[in-house]
């Protein structure tokens, strides 16, 4: 800290210069933030504005990044399309995503707690197995997994998407890192109070990794909601389809579908997630701010 105190003297001497530099710095940061936000959002607003245009005007130049027409016909066509039952697909997607998310929050946090805070023979070896399995490209196991699912008689059921996703090595890793950042004293104090391991996990430790849990929950939900390959591989029946497959239906026979309809379909499919996020965002990020570390 010696260097810091020295600096204080120098910086205090040149206050006007520092204010100017601070102002320039502020401006650069704000420009960066705003430009990035625009870049991130522009394609989506282009999609939204295009989905509201007459299909033959999909590729008009100059492009519009805000709605200039309100032709909700595209949405109407998609919703009433005989091929697409958006309510049913919504329910299918939601059901699978919810089950998978809740299951992962439980299984991952339990394992992560054990890996971070309990000592048992082979712990590091087990953890290494988890870690290594996280790095297995899904293509390696796509075929054998397919055969396992087939032998369990689960092809063409939602279980084929749910069961393999009941846990994730990613989640275990994420939460283990979170548990590790908690003060070790918490655990010891609880033990001295005579709490069982389950109580320590459930009542003491779990509430403190809320941010990690909500992050894992969100990403698990999104991962399941947006899963494209799984449904494509396993689901054959129209009435079991999920949203991403429904979008593909909109692309039509040999890709002949109408782009404005595809864009409208994508908008409809991200709308529930957007709604969820508009509420969950507060929860997640404020939850993170209230982390137990401070207490």
């Amino acid at each position: 800290m010696a260097t810091v105190s020295e600096r204080r003297i120098t910086t205090q001497r040149s206050r006007p210069g520092r204010a100017l530099a601070g102002f320039a710095g502020e401006a650069v940061i704000w420009a960066f933030l705003i430009i990035m936000a625009l870049i991130e959002f522009a394609p989506i607003s282009w999609m939204f504005s295009t989905s509201l245009r007459d299909p033959s005007r999909s590729f008009d130049l100059p492009p519009d990044f805000w709605p200039t027409a309100f032709n909700i016909g595209n949405y109407w066509t998609v919703i009433t399309s005989p091929d697409i039952d958006f309510l049913l697909f919504f329910w299918n997607s939601l059901k699978i995503a919810l089950i998978v998310t809740v299951a992962q929050l439980i299984t991952c946090s339990m394992a992560a707690f054990a890996f971070a805070r309990l000592r048992f023979r082979g712990r590091d070896a087990f953890f290494f197995v988890f870690l290594a399995s996280m790095m297995v490209p899904w293509t390696v196991i796509m075929v054998p997994t397919f055969i396992v699912i087939r032998n369990l008689g689960l092809s063409n059921t939602h279980w084929a998407l749910i069961l393999p996703a009941l846990t994730s090595a990613f989640g275990v890793f994420l939460l283990r890192q979170q548990f590790l950042t908690l003060p070790a004293e918490l655990m010891d104090a609880a033990k001295i109070d005579g709490a069982s391991y389950f109580r320590i996990y459930w009542q003491v430790m779990l509430p403190l990794v809320g941010p990690g849990l909500s992050a894992l929950g969100i990403f698990t939900f999104l991962g399941s909601w947006n899963n494209f390959l799984g449904p494509l591989l396993y689901l054959r029946d129209w009435d079991k389809f999920t949203f991403p497959i429904a979008i593909i239906q909109l692309e039509g026979y040999m890709g002949m579908g109408n782009r404005a309809h595809v864009l409208a379909g994508i908008m409809i499919s991200i709308f529930p997630v957007l709604l969820f996020f508009l509420f969950a965002q507060r929860f997640v990020i404020q939850g993170i701010a209230m982390t137990g570390l401070k207490g």
Partner: peptide
């Protein structure tokens, strides 16, 4: 996208 461009 041929189809959209043809129609437009």
């Amino acid at each position: 996208d041929e189809t959209a461009q043809l129609h437009a």
